[in-house]
């Protein structure tokens, strides 16, 4: 759901950029205050992993492909939605500037969708469901699914405001495709959380450790 430059008029792109920058500044503050040095390697490895995963387009039938977004994964593993904003912003800069994947004037909108909305939806869904179910796979799957679906609907609304795609068609198509892509996102997210908590339980936040039970690591 990387929006190219051609899909949003420049003035609207600037407005999204301004909103995005507020969150980017908050994400930098998060990095300064909350990210301890022990976590630096995890943050950087997650950025590399999310970049690679985003390049892997999997077929989702109906002549469409999709890839993982990674907002939920970053937010859950690092214990803050701002971690997702931080990592996704950097990944989107590399993708947009080097590979033309996602536009430059539309990067603000892409940061809002995948980093901000993806991160916040993923983090709070996970937190809420962890409290209720105590099951990392259930909470992780649902969080990542929603963190893929909701940003795609936001994207559809932005496309409508931009005059690129009618609202109803956009919501139906984006919702349908990303409901399927979200299942992949969910499975990969749960697998990645499991993998990271297995090799480095000390680096992971958000009650994931307790989810696996005492002595599970």
């Amino acid at each position: 759901m990387h929006i190219p430059d051609a899909f949003i008029p420049i003035p609207q792109g600037i407005i999204y950029w301004i909103i995005a920058l507020v969150f980017v500044v908050l994400a930098l503050k998060w990095a300064k205050n909350e990210m301890n040095e022990e976590k630096l390697p995890l943050v950087a490895v997650l950025a590399a992993g999310i970049f690679a995963l985003q390049s892997f387009n999997l077929p989702v039938s109906m002549g469409t492909s999709g890839h993982l977004v990674g907002g939920a994964l970053a937010a859950i593993v690092l214990g803050s939605p701002f971690a997702a904003v931080f990592i996704l912003t950097m990944v989107l800069i590399v993708q947009g500037v080097l590979f033309g994947d996602g536009g430059l004037t539309t990067m603000g909108a892409n940061i809002i969708n995948m980093g901000v909305i993806g991160g916040f939806v993923g983090f709070y869904t996970f937190k809420g469901l962890m409290g209720m179910t105590k099951s990392m796979p259930i909470a992780g799957l649902a969080a990542a699914w929603l963190a893929c679906l909701i940003p795609s609907l936001a994207c559809a609304v932005e496309m409508f405001i931009a005059g690129t795609v009618p609202l109803r068609e956009g919501l139906i198509a984006m919702g349908l495709y990303h409901a399927i892509i979200g299942v992949i996102e969910g499975i990969v997210t749960v697998a990645a959380i499991y993998l990271i908590t297995t090799v480095r339980p000390d680096l992971v936040d958000t009650g994931v450790k307790s989810a696996r039970g005492a002595g599970a690591s």
Partner: peptide
């Protein structure tokens, strides 16, 4: 195949 947004377009 095109991604979700490209397909929608």
């Amino acid at each position: 195949d095109p991604d979700g947004l490209e397909s929608t377009a």
